[in-house]
Each structure stands twice: as structure tokens, then as C-alpha cells.
């Protein structure tokens, strides 16, 4: 039962999802709209529980076990709770404040302020570290070790020159050549790869609906 019921549901909702595309009959159309606007939306909203719940559980476990760097787990939990309280009770539109004030004198701690000045810099900076990792890898690891790698680096060089305004000072046709690489050979190879990827996704979707692929059942219990 623990496996059969979910598998039957997947089969039925899967067939419904596909049929709704082919059958323009009003009853099906309406059912599909209810499926999307009510069923899918409300259930997906609850799915946040999975994400937030796992993170809280993970950090509580770390604290209980006094795992490496466990005191930092308090920071995650406290930040999560405070941000959620400010957002849920402080309201979204500044002109329509919620029950919780989001301003003390001139100092605002509205959810958008926290987003712009804490979340954005943290996320953007964390990602910008990649520029550094890449530059040192460029120096220490990216080698023209065989014909394939040489070809790859060559195409990359042309593109890097063509992509910046400097390219046209080296040769006036260089930017156009870079664009040609993207539009012709690159398009060909990416399209070839795309067919394979798409067939793979298609096969997986079909296998999930038919209950052959059951990896997702690992979502809970045995």
C-alpha cells in the first residue's frame, strides 16, 4: 500500500497532464485549470515544509551532536526565524504595513531592505568567488593536453576576444567570426546534444508515470 497508492496517483495525474494538452474539450480545460490553480498551487506551497524542515532538522541535529562548527548552526536557525517573522508579520508593501513595525526612527528593517542589503550581497559575492577559482585554474590546470582540448581552448580564445569590444581592433572581422562560431558549429553541436538530453528526459518522465523509475519513492520511509 505504501508504494502502490503513490504509484497509482502518479499514473493517473500523469495521464491527466498529458491528455489535457490534446483534448480541447471545455470540461477537460476547466478540470485542468482547477488542477493547476488549486491542487498544484496549494500542494506546492506546502512543499516548502520539506526544504525548510530539512534545514532546521539538519542544524538541530548538528547542535545536538556538537558536530564540527556546530555553534554556527544557531546563526542559520536564528536568521531564518527572525527573517520569517519580519516578512510574515511586517508585510510586503511598505505603504501597507503589517502588525509588526518594520522601522525604528530612520532605520528600516523591512523584508525588502533585508533582501537587498543582506541576501543579495551574500549570494552575489559567494558566486563571484568563482571568478577567482577560474582564474587560478586557468593558470594551473587548463592545458592544451591533446587535440580536443587544444580545439576547445582555441574556440574559447576567439570567443573571449570577440566578446569584448577590443576584438574588432585586432581584426575587424573577429567579432563576426566569434558570432559565427556560436551561430553555426556551436548551434550544431548543442542541438545534437540537446536531442540526446531531451530523449533522456522523455524516457525518465515516461518511466516515472509508468512506475518503472521509482527513485522518487525514496522521499520517505521504506
Amino acid at each position: 500500500m505504501q508504494r502502490r497508492i503513490p504509484l497509482i496517483i502518479v499514473l493517473l495525474t500523469g495521464i491527466f497532464g498529458a491528455v489535457a494538452f490534446f483534448v480541447p474539450y471545455p470540461a477537460i480545460r476547466n478540470a485542468d485549470e482547477i488542477m493547476r490553480n488549486d491542487v498544484q498551487r496549494i500542494i506546492t506551497a506546502f512543499s516548502l515544509v520539506l526544504g525548510v524542515g530539512s534545514i532546521v532538522q539538519h542544524h538541530l541535529l548538528k547542535i545536538r551532536r556538537k558536530a564540527q562548527f556546530w555553534p554556527y548552526s544557531y546563526i542559520t536557525i536564528v536568521a531564518l526565524v527572525i527573517t520569517a517573522i519580519i516578512g510574515v508579520f511586517g508585510g510586503i508593501d511598505v505603504t501597507r504595513p503589517g502588525v509588526l513595525p518594520t522601522r525604528v526612527g530612520n532605520f528600516s528593517f523591512h523584508i525588502q531592505t533585508i533582501y537587498s542589503n543582506m541576501m543579495v550581497p551574500l549570494a552575489a559575492t559567494m558566486f563571484s568567488l568563482l571568478a577567482f577559482f577560474m582564474s587560478s585554474a586557468a593558470y594551473r590546470a587548463f592545458r592544451a593536453r591533446n587535440l580536443e582540448a587544444t580545439l576547445l581552448l582555441l574556440a574559447a580564445f576567439i570567443l573571449m576576444l570577440g566578446a569584448v569590444p577590443l576584438g574588432r581592433f585586432i581584426h575587424h572581422r573577429l567579432p563576426a567570426f566569434a558570432e559565427w562560431i556560436l551561430a553555426v558549429p556551436n548551434t550544431a553541436s548543442k542541438r545534437g546534444i540537446l536531442f540526446g538530453v531531451e530523449l533522456g528526459i522523455f524516457a525518465t518522465s515516461l518511466k516515472i508515470i509508468l512506475g518503472i523509475e521509482r527513485g522518487w519513492l525514496g522521499g520517505g520511509g521504506k
Binding site: L130, F133, M134, S136, A137, R140, A141, R143
Partner: peptide, 12 residues
């Protein structure tokens, strides 16, 4: 993104 760090150190 960690692929870069791993491959770089391994190459070195």
C-alpha cells in the same frame, strides 16, 4: 562550481 577547485589541485 567546485569542479574547478578539484580538477585544478589534481592537475597541480
Amino acid at each position: 562550481a567546485e569542479s574547478l577547485i578539484l580538477a585544478e589541485t589534481g592537475a597541480a
